[in-house]
């Protein structure tokens, strides 16, 4: 046991006696660690809250106190987000046609479905956690959308190759324009659900919501568009998702600013 090993135990040590045997022995012989344990365990005294705020808070909160029904279980919202995702994606595919699907081999179909499905599930899960303050996180909510798009980029890069499409922009813009209309209603529906919770960070929630909505457009395009040029897929298909996330970031930032001004 050395000083560095001890750090990982310190967070739960209330004193030398409460440390595991090896760690306790180290602290008794190491002056640096003794000082650290003693310094951390002195804590900060609990201040007395002056008389005024607490009765004032009680008056404000207890005046006309009404029951507030707890939100349904998290899995309910998770299922709702995924249902919206699947329904809008199915509508999009039914509307635009599944031309790419017919040309994709089995391996590509599985890999595309698995990667898009996993990304969507993780984003939906993270969005649910955003509704409930103090929820457990398996991935940092701020990093998740970035991670999802990096993962999708790598996955698509492994599945497709750079080809020679005639007009990069002229061929690409219709795809982008076809994907966006599915992201917009999805984002609105997601927001209608999200507002039932307590979004502490509208900016992060906006990015996740936009990314998930944009992913619907990406999914529709992956099944619809038979242009398998990697550059086309990354820019014009995945771009729908990135655009969704950026739009969510912008809307969330405005929302956060409004909340802050209202509370000022």
């Amino acid at each position: 046991m050395n000083c560095s090993d001890l750090d990982f135990l310190l967070h739960r040590a209330a004193g030398v006696d409460t440390l595991p045997a090896g760690a306790g022995a180290h602290v008794r012989t190491c002056r640096r660690c003794q000082a650290l344990v003693a310094a951390l365990n002195q804590g900060a005294p609990l201040p007395s809250v002056p008389g005024e705020p607490v009765p004032a808070i009680e008056d404000r909160l207890l005046h006309n106190l009404k029951p507030a029904h707890a939100l349904p279980p998290k899995k309910f919202f998770f299922a709702a987000f995924l249902l919206i995702f699947v329904v809008l994606m199915a509508l999009g595919i039914a509307h635009l046609g599944a031309f790419a699907w017919a040309e994709l081999n089995l391996m590509r179909r599985i890999m595309i479905c698995a990667s898009l499905g996993a990304s969507a599930a993780l984003l939906a899960y993270s969005m649910v956690q955003q509704m409930f303050p103090g929820s457990r996180r398996i991935v940092s909510p701020a990093l998740l959308p970035v991670g999802a798009f990096v993962f999708l980029t790598l996955m698509l890069a492994a599945l497709f190759e750079v080809g020679h499409s005639g007009h990069f922009i002229r061929d690409g813009m219709p795809c982008f324009e076809a994907g966006i209309p599915y992201a917009v209603p999805a984002a609105i529906l997601f927001w209608l659900i999200l507002r039932r919770g307590a979004m502490l960070s509208p900016r992060v929630t906006g990015v996740i919501c936009g990314a998930l909505a944009g992913l619907i457009g990406v999914s529709v395009l992956e099944v619809h568009c038979s242009n398998f040029d990697l550059r086309h897929i990354l820019v014009w298909h995945l771009g729908v998702g990135v655009a969704g996330a950026l739009a969510g970031l912008a809307i969330g930032s405005v929302g956060e600013l409004m909340v802050r001004r209202r509370s000022a």
Binding site: A68, H69, A70, L71, P73, K74, M131, F132, P133, G134, G197, A198
Partner: peptide, 10 residues
């Protein structure tokens, strides 16, 4: 305002 987001048991 957010008390409805507390899940019993958490």
């Amino acid at each position: 305002k957010a008390r409805h987001t507390y899940r019993p048991g958490e």
